[in-house]
Amino acid sequence: MSATVVGAAAATVLALTWITTGFWAFVFVGVAMLVGAVAGRVADGRLDLRALADAFRGGRSSS
């Protein structure tokens, strides 16, 4: 699946959530989708949480 299809599907889910259940459910679903995306990237090895934490703390990167 392309990034465009995934983005459109995510936008559809969020829009339908907002329409049917309201703003705070929309926010909750959006945060849950973000957490799921981060967890997926960590599981795939495409996101290094230690490097990310070091960047936020002002640490140096090895690259």
Rank of each mutant, 00 (worst) to 15 (best):
A8W: 08
A43G: 04
T21Q: 15
V42K: 01
A11L: 11
L34C: 09
F23V: 05
M33I: 10
R41G: 03
A43L: 09
A43T: 03
G7I: 05
A32K: 00
F28V: 13
A37I: 10
L47D: 08
T20P: 00
W18H: 12
A55V: 00
V5I: 11
M33Y: 04
V38F: 07
T17L: 02
I19W: 08
A53T: 08
A53P: 00
V6Q: 10
A10I: 12
G36W: 04
G30T: 05
A9K: 12
D48L: 03
T4L: 15
G58V: 07
W18D: 08
M1F: 09
V31C: 13
V6H: 05
A25G: 07
L34R: 02
S2P: 09
A32R: 00
A51I: 01
A37P: 00
V42I: 13
G40L: 13
V29N: 00
G40Y: 05
A37H: 12
V31T: 07
V38W: 00
G22D: 08
D54I: 01
A15L: 13
G59A: 11
L52Q: 12
D54Q: 12
M33F: 14
V29A: 01
A25F: 14
A11T: 01
L34A: 14
F56R: 06
A37S: 11
R41V: 06
A25D: 12
V5S: 11
G45Y: 04
V5M: 10
V5G: 01
